[in-house]
């Protein structure tokens, strides 16, 4: 039987959508494929209100304090942070590369913008990822329809604003279908 739908508690501030936080970490030396990707990704929790979000987030490690090859994923409840998910299969993502030291602040600004519905693109946002790597960190924002130029442009402009990025920051859009073809995520 399906589990009951999570709701905001009495007196709490509901979010437009419920969200789930996931964590993944690649074992050193292991080659990534879609099977072990799915095994490595762990659901941390799901929340329906601002208060529930902070109860999770305040106890989580900040992404900038993670080491190795790790990712936090924040996705709408019911959407798995994988290309294969029905909501993602025709989608794509904006990729922003960050120099070391910026990950925690950028991630917090990004997820607050998502939870607060600052992107104004209807149902198009699927989720966001912060990827901690050795040389640099990467944030990405996933949307449903890679071919929808008006939506992807609006997401890019909102990202620039909420991340407060330097004007020369390089942003790249990649359709998941293209990532599948060249077998790469970044």
């Amino acid at each position: 039987s399906p589990r009951p739908i999570l709701k905001a508690g009495p007196g709490e501030h509901p979010l437009q959508f419920n969200y789930s936080i996931w964590f993944s970490r690649r074992s050193p030396g292991k080659q990534q494929n879609s099977t072990n990707y799915e095994q490595n990704i762990k659901l941390v929790g799901t929340f329906a209100s601002v208060e529930q979000f902070w109860r999770f987030y305040s106890h989580m490690v900040r992404p900038g304090d993670l080491s190795g090859h790790s990712d936090f994923h924040l996705f709408k409840e019911g959407i798995k942070p994988m290309w294969e998910d029905e909501a993602n299969k025709d989608g794509g993502k904006w990729i922003v590369r960050l120099r070391k030291g910026l990950a925690s602040r950028c991630w917090e600004n990004l997820i607050l913008a998502m939870l607060g519905e600052q992107f104004m693109v209807g149902e198009e946002i699927c989720g966001a990822v912060i990827s901690i790597r050795f040389q640099e960190d990467i944030v990405s924002v996933w949307n449903k329809t890679a071919s929808d130029h008006a939506t992807t442009t609006r997401i890019r402009d909102t990202l620039r604003r909420v991340l407060n990025l330097p004007p020369n920051t390089i942003m790249e859009y990649k359709a998941h279908q293209d990532s599948l073809k060249d077998n790469s995520s970044f």
Binding site: H13, Q16, E51, W54
Partner: peptide, 21 residues
């Protein structure tokens, strides 16, 4: 329908609410 929109300042303020602990 109506969208539930929160700005960053409000969300940051909510961080300190007793319900968020």
């Amino acid at each position: 329908g109506t969208r539930i929109i929160y700005d960053r300042a409000f969300l940051m303020q909510m961080r300190n609410s007793p319900h968020a602990k």
